[in-house]
């Protein structure tokens, strides 16, 4: 589903180049549920943005659903996102001028879905918001907004879903509800899920944990136990200069 090879991101500051992510090589298979964990500034969000094709690596490769994202231009990557990718953000990122229903319809329409309204209503029902479809984001609570965001993410039935700190802006009760919902829908749709978090409890519910430290992948639970669940058939290798996979 998703592989990277020596993924590196550096940014130039005034004095020197700063390496945010260094030579990350990993493979995520279809159906995997993966948590990317690490301290603040360890490069989690940068890795997520590269994996999802929101940004381009300074060097290295990302291949998502057989598309070499590192070779594609901005528009081609957008095409790949529309086709295969869904997002859930810490700050929800619902379009404030659209109702809950319209927000959920948008990705279906972009993908060229035939019945966006019907599909959107169905999934909003699944997240328990069928009563609030006509509400605008600022009329919804944080938990409700994130549920709309989850509905939007699954609405286009993406192959892979990226979630950036999905509970970061929520209290623990609401956070719990949202996480339950996320996993429930994920199981229903069989989506590959990659989430960034520093909530260890959440990470523990995932099949696999990738641990980042100062831009390097330092640990991968799949290497320690190869048969935790049926979903973790993936072989993810911690990056080391010795163990490079030939492309």
């Amino acid at each position: 589903m998703l592989t990277t090879q020596n993924l590196t991101k550096t940014v130039s500051s005034q004095e020197q180049d700063l390496t945010i992510l260094s030579e990350v090589t990993l493979t995520i298979n279809e159906g995997d549920i993966v948590a990317i964990i690490g301290a603040s500034g360890s490069g989690k969000s940068t890795l997520l943005s590269l994996l999802a094709g929101l940004d381009v690596p300074t060097s290295g490769e990302v291949i998502l659903a057989n598309h070499k994202l590192h070779e594609l231009d901005e528009d081609e990557r957008a095409g790949v996102r529309a086709q295969f990718v869904g997002f859930i953000f810490q700050s929800f990122h619902l379009l404030p001028g659209l109702t809950a229903l319209e927000n959920v319809m948008l990705p279906i329409e972009l993908k060229g879905g035939k019945s966006p309204r019907k599909d959107a209503l169905a999934i909003l029902d699944k997240v328990g918001l069928s009563e609030r479809v006509k509400h605008y984001p600022n009329q919804l609570s944080g938990g409700e907004q994130q549920r709309v965001a989850i509905a939007r993410a699954f609405a286009s039935e993406p192959k892979i879903l990226f979630a950036d700190e999905p509970t970061g802006n929520l209290d623990s009760a609401n956070g719990q509800k949202v996480v339950d919902l996320l996993f429930e829908l994920n199981e229903q749709f069989g989506t590959t899920l990659v989430l960034v978090t520093h909530d260890q409890n959440l990470a523990n519910r995932c099949d696999r944990q990738l641990s980042l430290e100062a831009g390097r992948l330092v640990a991968d639970t799949s290497e320690q136990s190869d048969s935790v669940s049926s979903n973790t058939k993936a072989t993810v290798k911690a990056v080391s200069s010795e163990a490079k996979v030939a492309s």
Binding site: D75, A78, R81, L106, P107, L110, K111
Partner: peptide, 14 residues
């Protein structure tokens, strides 16, 4: 922000 979300959801620049 709207445009960023559109782009993120896969809308092309054009």
């Amino acid at each position: 922000d709207y445009a960023a979300i559109y782009r993120c959801l896969g809308m092309r620049i054009r």
